[in-house]
Design a protein around this nucleic acid. Structure first.
Lengths: 156, 156
DNA sequence: CCCGTTGTCTTGAATGAGTCAAATCAAGAG
DNA sequence: CTCTTGATTTGACTCATTCAAGACAACGGG
């Protein structure tokens, strides 16, 4: 898996650079991260990387279909490497945790709204909002404090 | 319809003020508008209204369930008065036009992902991305210019 | 193995949506 | 009419993201 990054970049017509490999490394470890977290994490392996380089890399990756950008309401954009399999997301209202959901309907699922109003639909984006397991427990225990750590744990 | 705004505000425990009625007026005429457009439009009827007042009003309206906030990726937040009927949206990639879609599956539709991963889901948000009728024509006519006017037309 | 081209990264500044805080103002109860 | 309290104004500020110019490095050709 790891060794294909170089090939993937080359195939996409992109040069293989340190910043790009660093960002890909971070994305592989953390399924859903924002640009700032990527920058911080990437710096442990490539200290001189700049925030703008991260934005540039991400734009290139998204543009060539290697990564995907998701923008949950009320937060910064997140990036993930899982592309092309039309999956959706569960977002925790409390802590921001994100989990993947495979599409309920099959391959091209929600692509048919009841009334398309003349639109040529090419993508259906589905976001499920709710409370993750951890935050449900925290709320039941009446520990109403905000455990707002945005961590990645549900990878399965 | 118009006369109930006052009642709606009172029922929600909110004071009936000029800025609030102005914003409600704009929202009633334009199904999906961003805060800045609301401010501009509201100013034709209440010239002294400030942008921050609009944000405050919108927050109050959303908080009490009178309005709904939607945040399409890559653009500012939009507001609409249609609430509580669990409908979704069609967004035009080209011009930003937004149309409503009634839910395909019924009342509480997409609320059941295939694998909830322990989440307690309380809302499913669906966004269909594509090209509106107008932009399809424009593209076929090889008029590849950007007709980027964000207007409301599909209210039906 | 070195060199030049060209795409990429760095540095620094700017934009735009949205928020926060203090002071003023007015809705509506008494 | 007056007072209380919630709403609005004004102004400064944060944060994510983008733009621009110059320095740098990947990699194909010599």
């Amino acid at each position: 898996m790891e060794t294909t990054w170089t090939e993937q970049l080359r195939t996409a017509g992109l040069r293989v650079t340190r910043p790009r490999l660093s960002v890909l490394g971070v994305l592989a470890e953390h399924p859903h991260v924002d640009a700032d977290t990527i920058a911080t994490a990437a710096r442990t392996v490539h200290p001189s990387i700049s925030p703008q380089a991260v934005y540039g890399v991400l734009k290139a990756l998204v543009g060539s279909g290697i990564a995907r950008r998701i923008e949950p309401a009320g937060g910064p954009a997140l990036y993930e490497l899982r592309v092309g399999d039309n999956h959706h997301h569960l977002v925790c209202r409390e802590c921001g945790l994100i989990a993947d959901v495979d599409c309920v309907v099959g391959q091209a699922p929600c692509l048919q709204p009841s009334d398309a109003a003349g639109f040529a639909v090419d993508e259906a984006e589905v976001v499920f909002w709710g409370l993750c397991a951890g935050c449900q427990v925290a709320r039941r225990t009446h520990v109403h404090g905000t455990n707002s750590a945005i961590e990645e744990g549900v990878t399965a």
